[in-house]
Design a protein around this nucleic acid. Structure first.
Lengths: 209, 209
DNA sequence: GTGGACAACATTGTTCACAATTGTGCGGGG
DNA sequence: CCCCGCACAATTGTGAACAATGTTGTCCAC
């Protein structure tokens, strides 16, 4: 239940600030109002929806400032994970990382923005998995969920792939070289660049898809 | 409601792995079963209790490994906050930081473990506030909540204050000097030392209070 | 035309009873 | 003596009704 609603929000089925009426969700997802209620409570503590007493729930709109804050925290935590990944990566992990890096190169060369965006998610997710840091994984999942909209806008920004590609490659290289400090530094540099780019794409209309 | 149960858990009124029966909590806190239910859902997503379908809730026992993971993430995020705090601290903030540092010195000199533990919380909390990073603040609140037990054990460990005091002083100094890099480094060094100390105090019986 | 009291409506909060599921003790058979 | 099935107790999940609250629209005085 909660997953269904969460997916719907992150997928963009519900616009930011849109009201989430319990009865409507109850019908749409074919569940009791109680179940919907619990799901909304959970999503509220996850930061995806806002709930105010007697006035119901609405999907939370994260401002530019919040998006920057979130990315700052991501910078710190994913930096940690990159360092851990550099320490723990097996040969199989490294092969997988290089595989993604290679696909990223061809995607950017071919101008395939959507594939690159998917590879981006896979790369960050793989670094997390290799790091073995479950706590960091949970923290980042929550943060990422709140940020999907800004993330999406950034991915669609023209010229963005060509600046982020070398950063991604540097991350992969550092992890494969088993250099934790370099991996952390590369990840922080990458997300630092995301932070700088966020204000530029803020307010961009989402047309594609 | 949720605050009452959360406090009870962090205070230690409920032991780890203890079952939390809805009816019992309902009576103890004088609230409807529905309210208790919602509170448990929220506490579950906060990571304080575990809930399994049709089997109820129990307070989550965090293992030593998890405690270390949590502290690693804290190291990354609080490092970020220390750096931000060094950039943003006003004169009033700095005065407050130095005040706490001074009180820490006298507490350690006088062997007042409990006061020192309280000051420790206040210091970390103040750094967070000064950093102005609300997202980091929320993340850390959650993590700290899961870790209270280990944190508490560590605070009671004999000889611990004398090793952590200079680290705390270094943090305050770096922030007051307006040196973000040094502040981040000092905070990371401090929490790194916590990580090293955690295994030593693991399994210690909690007698005092 | 504007603002305020008031009523009708919509939505959430709460309670209750009951259904569904799981844990437990008991007895019988191997 | 141990293991399996069965009934019963304990507990959670769910649905419906009702209460409480907030929102919207209307009417009337000014």
């Amino acid at each position: 239940m909660v997953d269904a609603i969460r997916d719907a929000i992150t997928r963009g089925d519900f616009a930011p600030d849109q009201r989430l009426v319990e009865a409507e969700l109850s019908e749409r997802f074919d569940a009791g109002r109680g179940a919907v209620r619990n799901a909304l409570v959970q999503l509220a503590t996850e930061g995806l929806v806002e709930r105010v007493q007697n006035r119901g729930a609405r999907v939370r709109a994260v401002s530019l400032d919040e998006a920057i804050e979130i990315t700052e925290v991501r910078m710190a935590v994913e930096g940690l994970c990159a360092a851990r990944a550099a320490d723990r990566a097996t040969d199989a992990d490294k092969a997988e990382l290089r595989e993604i890096a290679e696909q990223m190169r061809t995607a950017v060369a071919g101008g395939d923005v959507w594939s690159y965006s998917e590879l981006n998610k896979r790369l960050h997710s793989l670094v997390l998995r290799v790091s073995g840091q479950r706590t960091a994984h949970e923290v980042l999942s929550r943060l990422r969920g709140q940020n999907v909209r800004h993330q999406f806008r950034l991915a669609l920004h023209p010229g963005r792939p060509s600046v982020s590609l070398p950063q991604h490659l540097a991350i992969v290289d550092a992890i494969c070289a088993g250099d934790p400090a370099a991996a952390e530094q590369a990840m922080r540099a990458h997300l630092g660049s995301v932070i700088e780019a966020l204000p530029e794409v803020d307010g961009t209309r989402i047309t594609a898809l």
